[in-house]
């Protein structure tokens, strides 16, 4: 990669985090990867501007978020047009945490986004607030409610395993 250098370091260091950010907004890992690659392609085409940004990482993350939101809106619109109701994203990747994954996917969009952005994409509260467009206090509230919901959904499973 030509601009090699700082761009590749950003790519190597932040790609997975960006994918999880997009995943929080889309609920689909495949679409999240697609959006993240597109964001890096945008950044590559504007590498001069990105390099001058105070934080190239924040610049690309903003593109990821905007593309994910745009794609989510487009998908919702198509769903309405096709009268399919709620979207049915790809099933989660197989793993050892299917119960938790299913519980997160069962949350409504706002609570799922808060959980995924903060706990899975590992973003600080103020960044989460900026991405979802609400005050930090609202993010904390959503996280608290989402955690309680997850605990409720997971506890019967744990009882079954006991």
């Amino acid at each position: 990669m030509t601009t090699g250098d700082w761009f590749e370091a950003l790519y190597q260091g932040s790609y997975r985090s960006f994918v999880l950010t997009a995943y929080a907004l889309l609920g689909d890992l495949g679409e999240a990867e697609e959006v993240t690659q597109e964001a890096f392609a945008v950044a590559y085409g504007r590498h001069g501007r990105v390099a001058r940004a105070d934080s190239p990482e924040a610049w690309v993350r903003t593109v990821v978020v905007n593309l994910a939101k745009r794609r989510g809106r487009r998908r919702a619109m198509l769903d309405r047009l096709l009268r399919r109701g709620a979207t049915d994203p790809d099933p989660p990747p197989p793993g050892e945490h299917l119960d938790l994954h299913a519980a997160i996917r069962a949350l409504d969009h706002d609570h799922r986004a808060a959980i995924v952005l903060h706990y899975l994409a590992d973003l600080p509260l103020d960044t989460v607030a900026s991405i979802v467009g609400v005050p930090v206090g609202t993010v904390k509230s959503r996280l608290s409610r989402a955690r309680a919901a997850l605990a409720r959904q997971l506890s019967p499973q744990e009882a079954d395993h006991a």
Binding site: Y15, R16, L20, G95, E96, H97, Y119, L120
Partner: peptide, 15 residues
């Protein structure tokens, strides 16, 4: 569990 899931998801994402 969230930490484990985060690790799993990250590992599922190939660069």
């Amino acid at each position: 569990q969230l930490t484990d899931l985060r690790t799993d998801l990250r590992n599922d994402v190939s660069l």
